[in-house]
Design a protein around this nucleic acid. Structure first.
Length: 423
RNA sequence: GGAGAUGUGGCAGAGUGGUCGAAUGCGGCAGUCUUGAAAACUGUUGUACCGCAGGGUACCGGGGGUUCGAAUCCCUCCAUCUCCGCCA
């Protein structure tokens, strides 16, 4: 959520930048400013009335004390009218605040100036490529076939126990999964991230804090009996640790990492894209989150991308880095880099990480601030990225490393798996 | 799940209808003193909104109510603690 003061001060730039995401912002921005003006004037009136009421109440108290009952009763009469109009003003004020909020909720983050124009993922810019796409033998299989052949993942059994999109990992498949989690966490910790194990369900306030609510409730599993949401990503509970917090400058940067399963309803997405591990309702992910000083957040974004690149290098997977165009940029993000690995048997790129700088967009909702050198409270910048999402990494590993003899495990994982080949 | 108690500023802890945004202590920050540090002393120390400013308004777990006036009374929700029950 953008701040109204920021909108007022940068109106022109904002409207211009919104064009990168094909968001026509002029009308809504004007509405917001107009409503905010109304908010100010009604508040002034309301404050004046309340001040008057407070003054009279004090007088009444004083008169009672002096035993001047009659005078006090007279003044009481005055306060009646004041109270009535105060209630009306208050209601108006609440209505305005609500309307203003619902407008602000509809406004996406302002894309960074280096975000390319564009409508869809076709317009994303490839800014980096690394690794060699392997040439597979003639009998190469897609990962879902491999998973079956080597008894690594049982999709049908998952359907029986829960439903589609909830696979059951078995044997070396489960072990490989656990190895990847440990590897990713160890790498993050080595890079200075503090490991946390957060709750897998969050309350409504947290879902608002990171922007899943009010618009994306359809994405999350909801438990009405307890009014809780299953997390769609560790970003939600980890970032919300810092909700309603005022940091000191010396606290920067805050670096957290956490492994969690992620739960996504993915309503309406069916077809070949969801085959095998490509899209699941429950999947594992290691997330990295940073809270940073606004002056340093873009440097930090680069280091986070470098961290993820390092992981992919070590796993020896061919990958590319994309700078997302405005049209593909998520609602809350100012700049996002996606990292995709090549899935050789499927012959397509799979998104395995998305690293974003949200600038103050989340911080504003979270009320996560810091005190600057002048003792003024300012909003922080929040950033996060997947490091990494497991299923597609697993898919690429299985497909790309398959040989006639079996599936080879990358060097770095062997200490974690305890085996070097699946056969 | 049942019964009871509690919820005040960074922390501890006063305050039970008016002069309370809130005593006091600790902590934090700035200064005096000191070669430096500690101690001592002095001052300062919540957040947000409105206003050019003086200043005003709101917030004492959340929400609602009573009252001219609420941290203080009532309702409700949430959290914590104690006891009982149940249970990894």
């Amino acid at each position: 959520m953008l701040q109204t003061t920021y909108i007022r001060e940068h109106k022109k730039t904002i409207i211009e930048r919104f064009k990168k995401r094909n968001f026509e912002g002029e009308e809504i921005i004007n509405q917001i400013i107009k409503l905010d003006d109304e908010r100010k004037t009604t508040q002034q009136k309301l404050d004046a009335q309340l001040a008057e009421g407070n003054k009279l109440a004090k007088e009444i108290g004083q008169l009672f004390k002096e035993g001047k009952q009659e005078e006090a009763t007279q003044i009481k009469e005055q306060t009646k009218a004041l109270k009535e109009s105060g209630v009306a003003l208050k209601e108006g004020q609440n209505k305005i605040a609500e309307d203003l909020k619902s407008l602000l909720y509809q406004v996406p983050n302002v894309p960074n100036e280096i975000v390319p124009h564009g409508n869809s993922d076709a317009d994303n810019e490839t800014i980096f490529e690394e690794g060699v796409i392997p040439v597979l033998h003639d009998n190469a299989l897609p990962h879902w076939e491999l998973a079956k052949k080597y008894n690594l993942i049982d999709f049908e059994l998952g359907v029986k126990v829960t439903g589609a999109g909830f696979p059951i990992y078995k044997g070396k498949g489960a072990r490989l999964q656990r190895a990847l989690i440990s590897f990713f966490l160890d790498q993050a910790v080595e890079n200075g991230y503090e490991e946390v194990i957060p709750p897998l369900m969050v309350n409504e306030a947290s879902a608002y804090g990171t922007g899943q609510l009010p618009d994306k409730e359809g994405q999350m599993y909801y438990m009405p009996a307890d009014d809780l949401y299953m997390i769609p990503t560790a970003e939600v509970p980890i970032t919300n640790i810092y909700r309603d917090v005022i940091l000191k400058e010396k606290d920067f940067p805050i670096k957290n990492t956490g492994y969690t399963p992620c739960f996504r309803r993915e309503a309406g997405s069916y077809g070949s894209d969801v085959r095998g591990l490509n899209r699941l309702h429950q999947f594992d992910k290691v997330e990295i989150v940073q809270i940073q000083h606004p002056d340093k957040s873009y440097e930090t974004l680069d280091t986070m991308v470098d961290h993820v690149k390092g992981l992919l290098n070590k796993l020896e997977l061919p990958y590319r880095v994309l700078k997302l165009c405005g049209g593909d940029l998520s609602f809350a993000s100012a700049l996002t880099f996606d990292l995709e690995v090549y899935s050789t048997a499927q012959k397509k790129w799979l998104e395995v990480s998305s690293v974003s700088n949200f600038e103050t967009f989340q911080a504003n909702r979270l009320k996560c601030r810091y005190k600057d050198g002048n003792g003024k409270t300012q909003l922080v910048h929040t950033l996060n990225g997947s490091a990494l999402a497991l299923p597609r990494i697993l898919a690429a590993l299985l497909e790309n490393n398959q040989t006639e003899e079996g599936i080879k495990i990358p060097e770095v994982l062997i200490p974690y798996t305890g085996f070097d080949i699946i056969n």
